[in-house]
Design a protein around this nucleic acid. Structure first.
Lengths: 138, 138
DNA sequence: CCGCATCCACGGTGATACTG
DNA sequence: CAGTATCACCGTGGATGCGG
């Protein structure tokens, strides 16, 4: 594996000029969306909601280790971004159901592609990370 | 758009039991890889290197706004994870060339899927974010 | 049951200056 | 040219307790 700077399909190779002007990366949808979902809990919540709607404490129990604060924050941000829908059910006491919007559901597909890559290659990354570094020659 | 918790293909829906045990998300390759590449500059550097190899200052000029410090850090981490290869060229003065490894190049494909989604939907996210919030009824 | 407020620790990021 | 070193800021996230 030596010459691997292949032509990349899709927007990754197509969109960015070089030098990259400031707006191209500050407003970069790719980086923006990535940072949006790359926090500690968002992906897991999306995955659970991708299976079926959940109530708040159901998610709280389902995502082991998450605090109420972070679950609330995560759900609120997902709701604000239109990825998750919040519905107050007329029960007693009131319960709240969270489910994916169409937008949120559509995100799961490309997320799956990245997930597959991660599952397939994370061991290689871990191996490379643990390998000895050659001395920093300049 | 009301009932959108469709069956999700791939590992996203398949792998995680509910309740999710701690190890399933702490070591979660998906979240791990996401957090790995979701910093401010990594994607942009990967994109530029996906087109062709670059020298250090070439990248520094190519990614407008990045500091020397962050470029060094980004490249070092990418190198440590086996996504980028660093080669010292026997010129005078010595120059250093960075290029993608096969692993790094393979990441660009799923990244493109997410990028396409981001390009297609980031406006909807922005619109939802700017919309008025209904009052928080409980 | 659901969510918010407060306090606090940590890491990512930036500005600047220095070095082989 | 290709980095290192130092200082400082701020957003993320964890713990705990209160409120509707």
């Amino acid at each position: 594996m030596s010459d691997t700077h292949t032509r990349v399909p899709s927007v990754l190779a197509a969109d960015l000029p070089s030098p990259v002007p400031a707006r191209e990366y500050e407003d970069c949808p790719v980086t923006g969306v990535l940072r949006r979902i790359a926090d500690k809990w968002t992906v897991l919540v999306l995955v659970l909601l991708g299976r079926r709607p959940h109530r708040f404490n159901e998610l709280h129990r389902g995502v082991d280790g998450i605090s109420q604060r972070m679950l609330t924050r995560t759900l609120r941000t997902l709701e604000d971004d239109g990825l998750v829908r919040r519905e107050v059910l007329p029960t007693a006491p009131p319960s709240v159901e969270y489910s994916l919007t169409a937008l949120g559901a559509s995100l799961l597909t490309p997320l799956s592609a990245l997930a597959d890559w991660a599952v397939a290659h994370h061991a290689e990354i871990a191996a490379a990370r643990n390998a000895e570094r050659p001395p920093r020659r300049t």
